[in-house]
Computed example of a mutant assay.
Amino acid sequence: GGSPWRPSARRAAAAGALLGVAVAVKLYPALLLPAAARRHRLVVLTSAVGVVVLSYLPHVAVVGTDVLGFLPQYLSVEGYQDGGRFLLLGLIGLTGTSAKAVAGVVLAAVMIAIWRSGPDRVGVERGALWLFGTAFLVATPVQPWYGLLLVVLAVLAGRLEWLAVAAAPYILYMALFTDLAVTDNIARPGGYLLGAAVVGVVGAGRS
């Protein structure tokens, strides 16, 4: 009795399930789905969504909409709801609703480009790196530990210049929680601006 699942489909289902586990723990790994689901799209997406839904159903049954926990407050405290967190966009005068709109358009454009690209032309690791790296530069988080996934993707994709972006939050983080003698104009976007410059220069040299 043979299984209707080919080995490649089984691997796709397993990959989707693992991504679903990651998303259930922390939302931002969902950014990897457009890169990971270009082959066996339905299998990967169904597996990932199924794991997330099944893992949250017991919580929803008990607490309802409170399952969101601190997330709405987090988005407000971190400045995403009012558009103040997008530091690089702020450098070009975009704040508030306009910053949120441009951030969404940029991220959606990269997602669509990766989704439409063939995995043979743009590998999963590189596609995931571009997606997560773009999100990192757009969202400019203050917490350095969010960069750990970016470090892994940079190494897997062989694009070590992105390590400069992963290190970008440290300047902002240290300025906020220590008495560094730097101005706000330098401390807030400075690390991200430098990281973006490194990626741009190295990428231009490679091409």
Score class of each variant (00 low, 15 high):
A164C: 09
D179S: 12
V77L: 12
V165W: 04
Y173P: 02
L137K: 01
G104C: 08
A196D: 10
K100H: 04
V199T: 12
L160T: 11
L129M: 06
Q143C: 00
P72D: 01
D66W: 01
R116L: 15
D179I: 00
V124T: 15
A109G: 14
G84S: 15
L153M: 04
Q81H: 00
V124I: 14
G104I: 07
G64D: 09
L150I: 05
V122W: 10
P141S: 04
T183G: 15
A187E: 03
S117K: 06
A113W: 14
V142D: 12
Y74I: 05
L180T: 07
A197S: 13
V142F: 05
V67I: 15
K100R: 15
Y192C: 00
L180K: 01
P169K: 04
P169R: 02
A101G: 07
T65Q: 05
L87H: 13
V165R: 05
M174L: 15
W130I: 04
A181F: 01
F177T: 12
W130R: 09
Y80Q: 08
G90T: 13
G69D: 01
E161N: 06
V124N: 08
L176N: 11
M111A: 15
G147A: 10
F136E: 03
P58L: 12
T97M: 13
P72S: 03
A167Q: 10
V155Q: 00
A109H: 12
V60C: 09
A139P: 00
A154G: 06
L180V: 03
G96P: 09
L71Y: 07
F70S: 13
G123H: 04
L172D: 02
L163I: 11
A113K: 08
D179G: 05
Y146N: 05
E125Q: 05
G90Y: 13
F177R: 13
T183Y: 01
L172S: 05
G84Y: 07
R126P: 00
T65W: 08
V63A: 12
I114L: 11
G190A: 01
T95V: 13
I186E: 02
Y192T: 00
W162F: 15
L57M: 10
A166C: 09
L172W: 11
V152C: 04
V198Q: 11
S76R: 14
A175Q: 02
Y74K: 02
S117P: 06
G84V: 06
G158A: 06
A157H: 01
A187I: 04
V152N: 04
D66R: 13
G203S: 13
P141I: 09
W130G: 09
L131F: 00
W115C: 11
V60K: 02
V110I: 14
V122S: 06
Y80K: 05
L172Q: 10
T95Y: 14
